[in-house]
């Protein structure tokens, strides 16, 4: 049997009073919001490929391919 699923969601915002916020770093797509929003999507990728550490002769990176 197929059910029609609906969800009702009610938020009651009462008094909010925040004191001191102390942050060292906001990085990698993070969000600090003092306010209202509808959607937040964040994506972050940090790659450490095998060539992240190279010990050898000083070699330049692969150059840009000309158009």
């Amino acid at each position: 049997m197929k059910m029609n699923c609906k969800m009702n969601y009610t938020v009651v915002n009462k008094d909010i009073h925040v004191g001191d916020i102390n942050i060292i770093g906001l990085t990698g797509s993070s969000v600090l919001l003092v306010g209202d929003t509808e959607h937040i999507t964040s994506g972050s990728a940090f790659d450490t490929p095998p060539e992240a550490l190279i010990i050898g002769p000083l070699a330049p990176l692969a150059p840009e391919t000309p158009f």
Partner: peptide, 18 residues
């Protein structure tokens, strides 16, 4: 306030030693 937020960051770190 805002309607929507969409953030994206990509990082590649490389260290080269002699």
């Amino acid at each position: 306030s805002n309607c929507s937020v969409d953030t994206e960051s990509k990082v590649i770190n490389i260290r080269q030693f002699i």
